[in-house]
Nucleic acid binder design. Structure first.
Lengths: 247, 247
DNA sequence: ATAGTAAGTGTATAAACTACACATTAGCCT
DNA sequence: AGGCTAATGTGTAGTTTATACACTTACTAT
């Protein structure tokens, strides 16, 4: 452990703490995660040794709060602010990074793979339509959670833990709204629950349940351009929700 | 940030990460927390400048997992192993330690109060009768949560966050058993909920609810030596509980 | 024996959950 | 224009869970 050498815009990074953000997005069909491409080049030839994906993560600045760091990482990748971020777990095993290709990648970028780094995991929920990815030189991509088989470092584990937390949270609080556009149909809302929780739900019973949520505002507006009976659109009223929460 | 100098039993401490344990105990009357006395002595006279209390905390060893560190801290203070420990939040604000007496205390013990330390918070639940405090030179004490007005550093904040997590958890899972002796009465069990959640509950309705918990085993045994009708004793069956959980 | 104390028990009402089937209304196709 | 397709939208009956509420029982201590 040496004094930190990495400096950026006049601020010093803390080399021992990083934040990883699991950024979830829902496209009415699947739950997706925002991933960042990682490339290892050959020291000698400069050719590509491998490509894979990491979660959105970064070290924290020495004078930066953890929540701030998570918000910064989210902003740098998506341009979004004021998004709900949940700190769900810390990953601090001394053997977090054991696979040889992960170690090689770190060495290539001048890091010591034996340095111990503690990572604080956050997840955030973004409505896919609200976002135009601001790549800033990174190659980023939405990927369906169901298709992700492996990730860099221990990020697959971090993703799984984030999913677990999200599921528990979704069962108790209506966080699903965050993953949808401002106006949505009840079917879209139901599908979101079914996909994230991995269950099937009865349409009538689901509607009875959400009818009790006073913060779910039905509009006169309807879906347009669909080849079937157009569904009514709904709004999530955050103010009413905050009032309801007091119990 | 310099190379770590503190070495203990041949292992190196990580100076940037610590673990704080909020160790809860219930004595049938109140919810208590295990605290460790902190003393600041005068540099010159050696007299006591102040005494107060901290949570049970410690830096982690470089080769130690976070959960291991939490278990070690709990063991060192109570001699207990195999106790449930829940990692509930990370405290990493760059301004965690601003009060002058906290800074003075750190300086006295050779630390730089401006060093940034990230603390991972765990809480654990112990049945008070199971435990004989192993002080190992520290002055430790159980203190009722309701009587704690302030603690060292940001530990009051950590305690409050632990309580918040515990309450949420208690509403969803029957973790209360951990705070009671192996055999307990339903009134004790109910009082535990009332005290931790800060609510009053109806005796008959409470009993109806717990009657549905199949992992709560009624014994033939009864309370002895009480000046009123002796209550039936109950056991928590962990095996049945784990089976019930699968739903 | 009696007073004090906490244990233990039942019923009626309201709210929430589950299972289940058919008519409606838009676009699309011919 | 008419019929097809596809998803929307709605009601009821049975079961389980939540809430409100008061008196008898069994032990100890005086």
């Amino acid at each position: 452990m040496e004094k930190s050498l990495i400096v950026h815009e006049g601020r010093t990074f803390n080399d021992f703490i990083s934040v990883d953000c699991v950024i979830f997005g829902f496209d009415f069909t699947q739950l997706n995660v925002l991933l960042v491409e990682r490339v290892l080049y050959d020291d000698v030839t400069g050719g590509i040794v491998f490509k894979d994906f990491t979660l959105a993560g970064h070290h924290i600045y020495q004078d930066e709060d953890l929540d701030e760091a998570a918000a910064r990482i989210l902003y740098d990748l998506t341009g979004l602010t004021n998004i709900y971020l949940e700190q769900f777990k810390v990953f601090g095993s001394p053997n977090r990074i054991t696979r040889e290709h992960d170690r090689a990648w770190l060495r290539f970028y001048g890091r010591n793979p034996d340095d111990r780094i503690i990572t604080v995991g956050y997840y955030s929920l973004v409505g896919l339509d609200r976002i135009t990815i601001q790549s800033k030189g990174w190659n980023v991509a939405w990927m369906p959670v169901s298709e992700i088989k492996d990730l860099a470092f221990d990020h697959m584990n971090i993703l799984n833990e984030a999913l677990k937390s999200l599921r528990i949270r979704l069962m108790h609080e209506p966080v699903g709204f965050e993953l949808l556009p401002p106006k949505f149909t009840l079917s879209q809302f139901q599908r979101l629950y079914e996909i994230i929780l991995g269950v099937e739900m009865d349409k009538r019973n689901f509607r009875k349940k959400v009818a009790r949520m006073k913060y779910l505002i039905p509009l006169e507006e309807r879906q347009q351009g669909v080849p079937h009976k157009p569904a009514r659109l709904y709004l999530f009223d955050r103010v009413v929700y905050e009032k309801t929460r007091e119990d």
